[in-house]
Design a protein around this nucleic acid. Structure first.
Lengths: 208, 208
DNA sequence: CCCCCAGTGGCACTGAGTGTCAATACGCTA
DNA sequence: TAGCGTATTGACACTCAGTGCCACTGGGGG
């Protein structure tokens, strides 16, 4: 056999790397075509032909046509909750949430060449927007739970955790919208600070 | 001809009443079946058979299967913007938005026998939730525009209008969620007051 | 009385999404 | 190196959502 110390990663199997390759190829082809011709004008057959796999394989990687696009931004949500969980327990909600929401926006800004096109496609395609908002509702639930835990509140009795999570995501949406409308000209991070300056008083309460 | 003063409404034609009848019949059948068997388990064929019309006719009244359910709550959005527009110009945003959002929730509470089942169905069915949130995004845009107009702000340069609209709808969502989870036991109006007590400071600014 | 037309049903078609099965390729073991 | 179990794939058939098209009908107006 080969020497395990060079060019061999036991933790990433051959099969796993192969799966990644197919997934990436599919995502690449889909994004290319969808951005070019619009969501409705592209069939799955075109995507899989371009990617060089069968139609059946497509649905083994993505649950729907919308998923190819939306999953591109999916990790954001899981990351946000993790980031919130890592903030110090005594930090004010406005500060903790600001940091949690900033990370995915910074990622967008860093990969603006790809991300901008995807975001614009999502915001302008009703079917994609619907799926995106559905995902975001999931994020809101996650943030609500995390926030309730850190504050010792019961989300079934107190409105605050859900409202705070919703406000943070409202800020996220507003920034994303402006970033998209300005074709990436405006700085997401600066816009986010601006947004949190508005919602901050509500997040930290009247005594803030 | 007949005497126009009795049992004849020139403003509501025969054809129009007929359309209403078909639409209501379709909505009725759909809601009944969907609530009973779940969204995915009901086909359009079942709905139209129950309603006694053809499949083709269904799609002349509703754009999709989701639409039958979501359109049940659709007028809410248009009503909200109209209500906001009618508030006095010098009223604080928090008060104006509170009134605008209260109306549809009051309507839900008044028809809780129907509305509760529909809301629960929507919140628990991913496909329906997605369509509902898509509609809500439209409401947010409308409220943003209305609010910007009343405050003399440019929504393309100021984040506030969109944030305020988003916060009001976040309150709306949180209340709807609690109302649904409690099977209608909690009072939407009281919950809404509670929610606006939280977000109010952000809506009216630091000088509120 | 006839024309007009909005609403309808039937039909065929495209495209999304799923279940099934045979073939293939890889990893492991003798 | 040969053989075996497993995971991935491709092909096919099928259901169902949604759309375009055309012929029919029934009621209202000239």
């Amino acid at each position: 056999m080969y020497d395990e110390r060079v060019s061999y990663r036991p933790e990433v199997s051959m099969a796993e790397r192969k799966r990644r390759l197919v997934s990436d190829e599919l995502t690449e082809s889909a994004l290319q075509l969808l951005a070019l011709k619009g969501f409705d004008a592209v069939t799955i057959d075109e995507i899989v032909t371009t990617a060089g796999v069968s139609r059946r394989t497509f649905f083994r990687y993505f649950a729907s046509k919308e998923d190819v696009v939306v999953q591109f931004l999916a990790d954001m949500g899981t990351g946000m909750r993790a980031d919130l969980a890592e903030r110090p327990a005594d930090e004010r909600p406005s500060v903790a949430l600001l940091h949690a929401v900033r990370v995915p926006l910074a990622t967008c800004a860093a990969h603006s060449d790809r991300a901008l096109r995807v975001v614009q496609l999502i915001l302008r395609t009703p079917a994609l927007l619907a799926r995106f908002l559905e995902r975001q509702a999931q994020w809101r639930g996650d943030l609500t739970q995390e926030l309730a835990g850190r504050l010792g509140l019961d989300p079934a009795r107190e409105l605050y955790p859900r409202l705070a999570a919703g406000m943070a995501l409202t800020a996220f949406d507003a920034v994303l919208q402006r970033w998209s409308d300005s074709d990436g000209a405006e700085d997401p991070s600066a816009l986010l600070d601006e947004a949190f300056a508005v919602i901050g008083p509500a997040l930290d309460g009247v005594e803030g």
